[in-house]
C-alpha cells in the first residue's frame, strides 16, 4: 500500500529543482551551477582531475618496488617541484588546494543531484523492477564514492599525518608504508577501498564522456574500454602494494 499521493496539479507546481530566477542576473558561475546538466559536467571535469591525481599517485608510489632510496627520493622531489619559481612545497600546496576544491565540487554536486533524484521519484515502484541496462557499478556510485572519501581521510591520517596507529616518522616514507601495511586488517582496508575505487571508475570513466558530451560514432566503443582499462590499471597497481607488503614479499 502506498502513501496517499498529492493531486496532480499540486505536484507539478512543486518542482524538484528550483527554476532560474527571472529578471535578476546572478554571477555567471552561480547561474551555471544552478543547472543539473552543468553540475554533472562539473562532476566529470573534477572526476578527470581526480583520475589524473589517482593515476600519478599510483605511478609514483610504485617506486616502492624500486627500494627505499628510490621512493624516499621521489617523496622529497614532490616538495621541490616548481622550484625555483615557487618556494619549496609551494607548488605542492597549490596542487593540494586544487585537488581539495575538485573533491568538494565533486561531492557537493553528487549530494545535491542525489537529493534531486530522490524528489523526482517519491513513490517507489511497488512491484520488483527488472533492470535491463544499469550495472552494479552505475547503481552503487554513491556508495563507492563515499567509501573512497572515507578511505582518503583514513589514508591521510595513516601515512601523511602519522596518526593511524602504526609507527611513523616524517620523511621515512618507505618504512612508514611497511609499518602500516604489515597489519592485516589495514592491508584489507586498503584493498577493499581500492576495489571500490575501481568499481567507481568502471562507471565514472565511461559516464564522464556522456556528461561532457564527448560522443562520436568513431570512438564510442573505446569509451567503455578506456574505463575498464583505467580502472584495472589503478586497481592492480594500488592493490598490489598492500598485498605485497602484508604477504612479506616487500619488507
Amino acid at each position: 500500500m502506498t502513501k496517499v499521493s498529492e493531486a496532480p496539479k499540486a505536484r507539478l507546481e512543486r518542482p524538484v529543482h528550483p527554476a532560474p530566477k527571472e529578471g535578476r542576473r546572478l554571477p555567471f558561475i552561480v547561474e551555471f551551477y544552478g543547472s543539473a546538466v552543468a553540475k554533472k559536467w562539473l562532476m566529470a571535469v573534477t572526476g578527470i582531475m581526480l583520475m589524473g591525481f589517482v593515476f600519478a599517485h599510483m605511478v609514483g608510489n610504485l617506486k616502492l618496488y624500486f627500494g627505499e632510496k628510490s621512493l624516499n627520493h621521489y617523496a622529497e622531489w614532490l616538495k621541490e617541484i616548481g622550484e625555483p619559481i615557487f618556494p619549496r612545497t609551494g607548488l605542492l600546496w597549490i596542487l593540494r588546494f586544487v585537488l581539495l576544491g575538485a573533491v568538494v565540487v565533486h561531492i557537493v554536486s553528487a549530494a545535491q543531484l542525489t537529493r534531486m533524484n530522490r524528489r523526482a521519484r517519491p513513490d517507489r515502484y511497488q512491484a520488483p523492477r527488472d533492470y535491463a541496462a544499469a550495472t552494479f557499478a552505475s547503481r552503487t556510485m554513491r556508495w563507492t564514492g563515499v567509501i573512497v572519501a572515507l578511505f582518503v581521510v583514513y589514508h591521510l591520517m595513516d601515512l601523511t599525518w602519522g596518526v593511524g596507529g602504526a609507527e611513523w616518522t616524517s620523511g621515512e616514507v618507505y618504512q612508514n608504508i611497511i609499518n602500516s601495511f604489515e597489519r592485516w586488517p589495514i592491508a584489507i582496508v586498503y584493498i577493499v577501498a581500492n576495489l571500490a575505487l575501481g568499481v567507481h571508475l568502471y562507471h565514472g570513466g565511461w559516464s564522464m564522456f556522456q556528461s561532457l558530451g564527448w560522443n562520436n560514432g568513431k570512438f564510442n566503443d573505446w569509451r567503455r574500454m578506456f574505463a575498464i582499462g583505467f580502472a584495472t590499471i589503478v586497481v592492480v597497481g594500488n592493490v598490489s602494494m598492500p598485498l605485497m607488503v602484508v604477504t612479506g614479499v616487500v619488507n
Partner: peptide, 30 residues
C-alpha cells in the same frame, strides 16, 4: 530540470524506449 531527476548514465532509458532512441542524443544535448 524543474520536474525531473538528473541523468547518471545508467542507460535504462534507451533500452525501454519503444523507438530505440539512443543515449547518444543525451550526450549531444549536454
Amino acid at each position: 530540470e524543474r520536474y525531473f531527476g538528473s541523468c547518471t548514465n545508467h542507460g535504462e532509458c534507451q533500452t525501454a524506449c519503444p523507438k530505440e532512441i539512443s543515449i547518444d542524443f543525451i550526450a549531444l544535448m549536454n
